[in-house]
């Protein structure tokens, strides 16, 4: 399985949409840097995340916290530490970066 990372805001960039298009059932998408904005509760992108329940969604906790979104992220996303980010890259066959 592939670990996809997205580091751009979905509101002004196609990375997140493109990533979702090519994502298979059981894959993982990790939101980092400005990519975490896709997880903001009550937006069209968090709705997409919530409807794709066969994909695992993660967000890097430090990036979420920096942007003031810790209390405001879709419950469909798991917050992970830097250490868990490393673990994810190790447990996946490859990493695909969408930027």
């Amino acid at each position: 399985m592939i670990l996809h990372t997205v580091n751009q805001s979905p509101f002004n960039n196609q990375s997140f949409a493109d990533c979702l298009k090519f994502c298979r059932k059981g894959s993982s998408i990790l939101l980092i840097e400005d990519g975490v904005y896709a997880g903001k509760k009550g937006t069209e992108y968090s709705a997409l995340i919530e409807s794709n329940n066969n994909i695992n969604f993660y967000a890097l906790a430090v990036d979420v916290k920096a942007r003031g979104l810790t209390e405001d992220l879709s419950p469909a996303i798991s917050l992970i530490s830097d250490r868990e980010f490393v673990d994810l890259t190790v447990t996946h066959k490859s990493v695909q970066s969408w930027f």
Binding site: S9, N12, K65, R67
Partner: peptide, 14 residues
């Protein structure tokens, strides 16, 4: 996306 700058509770120390 500039409006994201206005959000409160930002904590970028980490």
């Amino acid at each position: 996306d500039g409006v994201w700058q206005l959000l409160d509770q930002q904590d970028s120390a980490d």
